[in-house]
Amino acid sequence: MPTPVELYFEAWQAKDPQILRPVLADDVVFDGPLAHVEGADDWIVALQGLFDATTALTVHKRWIDGDDTITWFDLTIGQSAAMPTVNWTQVDDGLIRRVRVAFDPRPMLGG
């Protein structure tokens, strides 16, 4: 069975955030350069838009330290250049509790 973080990226590749719902804490918090979202149901809605817009996702490396996982990947939205991205996912009792993402969004925004 995949870990919650592996399931997160599998759901992204499948463009189906509902796959992720069983491993999201109800009070999950997401923070990134373009959004702050609180709550699993709201995050599922936000993820659908992101997943639909993603044209390529290439995971390069994953580091695990207890309940914390850092994933380094390239993200392509639409026709933008690939954006190097880091995702810090915190898992507690098998549920994703917090996700922090950092990337430079200028390629996606036309800059």
Score class of each variant (00 low, 15 high):
66 G>Q: 14
20 L>I: 08
101 V>Y: 01
14 A>I: 02
61 K>G: 06
6 E>T: 04
84 P>M: 02
33 P>V: 13
101 V>F: 06
98 R>W: 01
16 D>Q: 03
7 L>R: 13
100 R>V: 13
62 R>T: 15
19 I>E: 05
100 R>E: 02
70 I>F: 14
64 I>N: 13
79 Q>G: 07
101 V>I: 15
103 F>K: 03
36 H>L: 09
54 T>L: 07
95 L>A: 07
64 I>F: 00
63 W>Y: 14
71 T>M: 10
102 A>T: 13
101 V>Q: 11
57 L>W: 06
16 D>S: 04
98 R>K: 15
18 Q>K: 05
17 P>Y: 05
72 W>V: 09
87 N>S: 15
99 V>D: 03
90 Q>W: 11
61 K>Y: 13
46 A>Q: 10
109 L>E: 02
100 R>P: 00
80 S>N: 02
45 V>R: 08
89 T>Q: 05
41 D>N: 08
80 S>K: 01
105 P>A: 10
34 L>H: 00
58 T>K: 13
24 L>F: 06
46 A>C: 07
19 I>C: 02
42 D>V: 02
77 I>T: 00
4 P>I: 08
57 L>Q: 14
102 A>P: 00
63 W>M: 04
34 L>W: 00
53 A>P: 07
49 G>N: 13
25 A>N: 07
26 D>G: 11
11 A>C: 10
27 D>K: 12
32 G>K: 00
6 E>G: 02
111 G>R: 12
22 P>M: 06
63 W>L: 15
100 R>H: 09
81 A>T: 10
6 E>H: 05
96 I>A: 06
82 A>M: 07
47 L>N: 12
83 M>N: 01
50 L>T: 15
90 Q>A: 11
75 L>E: 09
70 I>Q: 09
101 V>G: 07
82 A>N: 08
80 S>D: 00
40 A>H: 01
45 V>A: 14
88 W>A: 14
87 N>T: 12
60 H>S: 10
95 L>M: 07
97 R>G: 05
16 D>K: 05
41 D>Q: 15
39 G>K: 04
49 G>W: 12
90 Q>N: 09
92 D>G: 06
99 V>N: 08
111 G>K: 10
14 A>E: 06
31 D>F: 01
91 V>I: 01
24 L>D: 04
12 W>V: 03
109 L>I: 02
83 M>D: 00
107 P>M: 11
13 Q>E: 07
85 T>G: 03
97 R>P: 05
75 L>G: 08
71 T>K: 06
21 R>V: 08
